[in-house]
Each structure stands twice: as C-alpha cells, then as structure tokens.
C-alpha cells in the first residue's frame, strides 16, 4: 500500500536495497573482567557496498571495509555469532525529486516481522535542518504513521549527517522489532 501511494505521488522505482544485521555476543573471556556481556552488531548496507558497519549498543560505530567479516571469523574466540538473530530488511528504492525512499520488509530468520521505511533528503547534510520538511513529506504518504524525531537527531545538533547515523537508526529499529511484534515505522534523516 505504501508503494502504491508513493507511486501515486510521482516517485519512480530506482532499484533495490538491502540492509542486514548480525549479532555477536562477547565471549566469556572478555565479559569475565567485570563487564556485563555486550552485544555487537555487524551490519551491511547495499547503499555502501564496500563498507561494513560494526556497532555497539549505545556505543561507538566503526566503519570498516567489507572484508571485516573475515576478520570477525578469526575473532571467534572473543565474539560469537548468534546465528538465529540475523535480521535483515530488503525492498525497493524509490526516488522522488531529491528524496530517496526505501521501503523494505524486515525479516528475521524465515518470518517477516515488519516494514521499514527509510526517507532520505539528499541535498541537505544537517538532519535537524530538514526535519520539518521530512515530516511533511512523510505525512504525505504515511499519514498518521509518521514517526517522531529519531533520537540520533537530538545528539547531533548541527553536525554533518553520516552513513553511520543511518545504521544506528536501523540497529535501533531492528532491536525494537526483536522485542515487539508490531509494525514500527522509522523515519531516517
């Protein structure tokens, strides 16, 4: 239904996209030093095919080359892959003027868990500046489902938006989806 509304608006299909996220547990060797076991997420985004994003919950975000994955295999002793927790979102990219909209289905294992909507306004590099503009755009096709301002924006003030910020939002979204079974919607950038 969302895609139909977008197409009515005049958006054009522009290929496909995919974001995936794997979860790693810190192994006993590290967590025994008094810290609680932290989760690390390794994510890929088809928009940045040469990069690999490694994020800690509420923590730093590391952007590495795509062969970071092989490194993670070697680090098995420290980080263990939780296979069952792999979650991904795949769908279609739409382009409408300078907006880039990605509507994807979030799947975890074999089951579909929800829909993700990513909206990007490419000309603007400061997320807070164009938030009102984004809101208006999202209202035009999502109606009452328009999300409130993402938490990333609060901390960013007026620094330049980066791909890592998108990934943090995807991580938060995926976490939310894991916990609850509803259909949340995320507005990004």
């Amino acid at each position: 239904m969302l895609s139909k509304k977008l197409e009515l608006l005049g958006a054009e299909k522009h290929g496909a996209f995919g974001v995936d996220c794997e979860t790693y547990h810190t192994a006993a060797a590290i967590s025994s030093q008094g810290q609680t076991g932290k989760l690390m997420y390794v994510m890929h985004n088809s928009e940045y095919p040469l990069s690999c994003f490694a994020l800690f919950e509420n923590g730093p975000c590391l952007i590495a080359d795509a062969n970071f994955d092989t490194l993670m295999v070697k680090l098995k002793g420290f980080f263990q892959n939780a296979k069952a927790n792999k979650i991904e979102s795949r769908g279609t990219r739409y382009q409408y003027c300078d907006f880039l909209v990605k509507v994807g289905t979030v799947t975890m294992g074999p089951s579909a868990r929800g829909i993700s909507v990513e909206v990007e306004y490419c000309p603007c590099v400061i997320a807070n500046d164009c938030w009102n503009l984004l809101m208006e755009f999202m209202q035009s096709f999502m109606g009452s489902h328009t999300p409130s301002i993402p938490s990333v924006f609060g901390t960013k003030h007026d620094s330049i938006y980066s791909p890592a910020d998108t990934m943090v939002q995807y991580m938060e979204l995926f976490n939310k989806i894991r916990k609850q079974q509803q259909v949340p919607v995320a507005g990004i950038r």
């Binding site: 300078d98 164009c130 755009f137």
Partner: peptide, 18 residues
C-alpha cells in the same frame, strides 16, 4: 533553505521542492 516554510502557503514542500 530547508528550514523556512513558504510565506504564502505555509508549507515546506511543493512538488517535492522546498
């Protein structure tokens, strides 16, 4: 450019442009 709404129609977007 991206923050000011139109002084006439009060909206941000029109045909996808601010």
């Amino acid at each position: 450019l991206f923050q000011a709404p139109c002084q006439r129609c009060g909206k941000f977007l029109q045909d996808g442009l601010p």
